[in-house]
Design a protein around this nucleic acid. Structure first.
Lengths: 109, 109
DNA sequence: TCTCGATGCCGACATTGTTGACATCGGAGT
DNA sequence: ACTCCGATGTCAACAATGTCGGCATCGAGA
């Protein structure tokens, strides 16, 4: 179970966390995915996936009190672990390697 | 259910079928994936996935009698449908778009 | 005929995907 | 202080996908 292949949505979540850096909390992850891919994402899916990724040690989370200016309630922020980054690289490189040789067929539109 | 997101293995199988062209039958699909990605793939997984993809109309299959030179038994060959190609493009472009901006973090090694 | 390798197919179970409900916290307004 | 409300977090349940291992069948050749 340690390094099992990542599912597609897990890949998207991991990448979103990388994009967000220090600001990676669930609703932001959701927006990041929806904004970039255009596909709708339910709130629950994000929380569940974040949880599962953390239990696989691919992500780590910290709880952060409401400070700075804005938000009131405390939020849980995520960051990718080394293992998470490696797992993501593996998943992406598999697709990347399969891609070689059929790029012409995959061009958008 | 029509255009639901593709799973990761489904993506790999679809791409393998594209690579193989006219020669896309299950064992060849398996070798194509193993050869390019390095990850081991069980025979059963390939048949099941091919089946599911066909029932979603993303692939079409024809049964072909043993002819030409080699093999004895008849084989089932697959080709990607237009819908399959479109679904594949969508799946890949989602990942591709998420990739923009974090490429440095994803470089191999 | 018997055995063997290659191929196809299926049942069972593990993992991942997705939804919708429910709980909780703080802030705004009264 | 109280009530409402939006934002956030959590969970249970079910659907879809991933994975394995076994069994059946076909043809080739001993």
């Amino acid at each position: 179970m340690a390094s099992g292949p990542l599912g597609e949505f897990e890949v998207l979540v991991l990448m979103a966390v990388l994009h967000l850096g220090e600001g990676a909390y669930p609703p932001a992850v959701r927006s990041a995915i929806e904004g970039r891919t255009g596909r709708p994402v339910s709130r629950g899916a994000v929380y569940v996936t974040l949880d599962r990724l953390e239990s696989k040690r691919l992500l780590a989370s910290r709880l952060e009190a409401a400070e700075s200016v804005a938000a009131g309630r405390q939020r849980r922020f995520y960051r990718t672990s080394l293992r998470g980054l490696q797992a993501l690289r593996r998943a992406l490189s598999a697709v990347q390697r399969m891609r070689v040789g059929i790029e012409p067929l995959l061009e958008d539109r």
